[in-house]
Design a binder for these strands. Structure first.
Lengths: 193, 193
DNA sequence: TCTGAAAACTAACAGTGTTAGTATATTGTA
DNA sequence: TACAATATACTAACACTGTTAGTTTTCAGA
């Protein structure tokens, strides 16, 4: 029909918009195509398949998360930086849950590009811990632990797993972050003992 | 055809078996029906829909996880109990990843039965922490934090997110658990200050 | 102006969960 | 033992999914 010069970028942008508004679960190529006023089959002129489109959305999501994290820790050091990072991460997960889910479900294995993008998530964490006097190995372990805490907390909160008890969820989160800082300080002592 | 007296329990059991062997992703009602030598539509004589079947599998998964956890902490106290619980949880996630995924994706919200089943996961954690001298509120927070660490770690490990650095993943896990025990001890001091 | 590529189309395939309506086998009861 | 009711299975179909093949149309560069 009346061609509208649709680009690959337009399609990715529309996919992001649709996932954010309708939820990852309700995403479909036919509905996406409909929003772009084309047929589903026409999407394949721009993307190889749904997985590829999904991966592109993932790259966007990772870059957004990285941006939020780096912005949060700018000019901060040690505990303050760690807390700011945790806050930014938490805020991202709560404000953009569907986009956050895309990151989680990216197939880190078997895809080199995604694997490389994974470093974009690690980088701000490493930066936030930079002012602690830690060994390289310690930082690698602690970065994994920090990510586990953040991701574990957010995904369970999102899933509604934290409604069993009346205590404030925000308080739990702050306590978790404080616990991690405790471990950071403890590791610092061990490194210089 | 030649009716075989298939029960609801048979179907749930077959679903569990199929999910464990073929992966949650490859599960389908038609294939499940085929394995039971019936047609897909016949499944609806025993289950309301796929979600309900899924929920039943989730109940099984939760009870299995609970069993593993309670068995692990039996006769142990404090740090030893916490470490044993973490080990059992980790082992469950690694040995039965597909069944574990079912638990994660259960819609805790909006379903009372699932919500109640959620307590089965919390219970062993509370038991493991019982010998620490903590307030009720502290235990509620710490239980959330422990679950966050365990779940966050296992799901990221499973997703292949921990391959970016060469340090041993088992070491990271032990360090995370040690960090949580540190927080437990610290909270104990605060409670009695 | 012609050619070739890019971008759209239609039609179809194989797969999904699900429902309606129908036949048959088993079970409980008169 | 015969009959009615229930449970279990069936077939056929619907609406949806991602995806491919083959075809037309539009646009841009030589």
């Amino acid at each position: 029909m009346a061609r509208q010069g649709l680009t690959r970028g337009d399609i990715i942008a529309a996919a992001i918009k649709m996932i954010e508004s309708e939820g990852l679960h309700n995403f479909s190529l036919r509905e996406l195509a409909s929003r772009l006023h084309i047929k589903a089959a026409s999407l394949y002129n721009h993307i190889r398949n749904m997985d590829e489109l999904y991966t592109e959305v993932g790259f966007y999501a990772i870059s957004e998360l990285k941006k939020a994290q780096l912005g949060a820790i700018a000019g901060k050091r040690r505990g303050e930086a760690v807390e700011a990072l945790a806050d930014a991460y938490h805020r991202f997960g709560k404000e953009r849950p569907e986009i956050y889910k895309v990151i989680l479900s990216l197939p880190m294995v078997k895809n080199d590009a995604i694997h490389r993008a994974g470093f974009d998530i690690v980088e701000p964490i490493m930066a936030a811990m930079a002012d602690y006097h830690l060994t390289g190995a310690q930082m690698m372990h602690l970065q994994r632990i920090f990510r586990s805490i953040l991701h574990g907390f957010i995904s369970q909160e999102e899933a509604g797993c934290f409604r069993q008890y009346p205590v404030d969820v925000g308080d739990s989160y702050r306590m978790a972050v404080r616990g991690f800082i405790l471990l950071l300080e403890n590791s610092e002592k061990e490194a210089h003992a």
